[in-house]
């Protein structure tokens, strides 16, 4: 079975590599992309979408479908990680082990009996969960995390003016919670933002994106045609496109943040959500 899979993978790869030979060359002036597509974006993107950053307008408006399904792919990655790794079997509680390290040799001894108590100068009790308790790290992370989150919100909100956007901002937001989980412990992070909340948030992000698209359908436009939002917002259609893009970016950020944390928690605790790094 593995050999069949390998052959299929190699064949697919060969077909894909063969297909790339038909692509226009890198930087080719006469390729369709340079002749028709890029000049159109450069010429009209500001007057059509009122977004100074062309990359954002291409990503979230002209190619909104692409970005929507990218977000869906990220949601599916989180879902797959949850389904593959999560273990709900809490009944078989393993007997808590106690670890001692023999200081001169560095050997670590594990005791499965609870009532071991070695008071020898050569032995040192080690935290069985291997959670470092460290005042310096905790304090610095407590100072840094709010700044990281503010910067993430800045990146999300500023996506249409400067480099940035939903994906990057979401990753930074997720990283701030992961930093909390690393510097304190996993339980603190899960108390702050529970598993259910994360699941709901990861779906809400995709829902916001698709919902804005459907709202445009209801307002008698095309799917993701943000200009039609001007019918319910007190602004002109061009400004409405910028607002629509901002809404979409927020949806992307929420999904990316939740999925980052889901993947981290499931991998770090091997699906048990109890202990971990």
């Amino acid at each position: 079975m593995k050999k069949v899979a390998l052959i299929v993978v190699i064949l697919c790869g060969a077909i894909l590599i063969h297909a790339t030979s038909e692509f226009p060359k890198w930087g080719e002036i006469n390729s369709p992309a340079s002749l028709h597509v890029s000049p159109y974006y450069i010429k009209y993107s500001v007057e059509q979408t009122d977004v100074p950053n062309i990359v954002t307008s291409v990503l979230a408006d002209y190619r909104g479908f692409d970005t929507m399904f990218e977000t869906t792919v990220i949601f599916c990655a989180g879902l797959a990680c949850f389904l593959l790794l999560r273990i709900f079997n809490d009944k078989e509680e393993e007997t808590e082990s106690i670890f001692y390290r023999h200081i001169p040799s560095g050997i670590i001894i594990e005791f499965k009996n609870h009532e071991v108590d070695i008071r020898d100068e050569d032995f040192e009790l080690i935290d069985s969960k291997f959670v470092p308790y460290d005042l310096i790290i905790k304090t610095v992370c407590r100072i840094l995390i709010p700044f990281i989150q503010i910067f993430a919100l800045y990146v999300v909100a500023h996506g249409d003016f400067s480099p940035g956007g939903g994906f990057q901002g979401g990753v930074i937001l997720g990283a701030s919670i992961i930093l909390l989980a690393i510097s304190f412990n996993l339980k603190t992070a899960i108390e702050k933002i529970s598993e259910k909340t994360l699941g709901v948030l990861s779906a809400i992000g995709v829902f916001i994106y698709a919902g804005i698209g459907c709202l445009c359908l209801i307002l008698k436009g095309h799917f993701l045609d943000y200009g039609k939002l001007a019918k319910i917002l007190p602004i002109d259609p061009v400004k409405a496109r910028a607002i629509g893009m901002l809404g979409v970016e927020i949806g992307v950020a929420i999904t990316v943040m939740a999925v980052m944390i889901i993947i981290y928690i499931n991998i770090a605790s091997q699906g048990k959500h109890q202990e971990g790094l």
Partner: peptide
Amino acid sequence: LSSPTATHA
């Protein structure tokens, strides 16, 4: 702020 803390960790 963060680099010495990371080294320490």
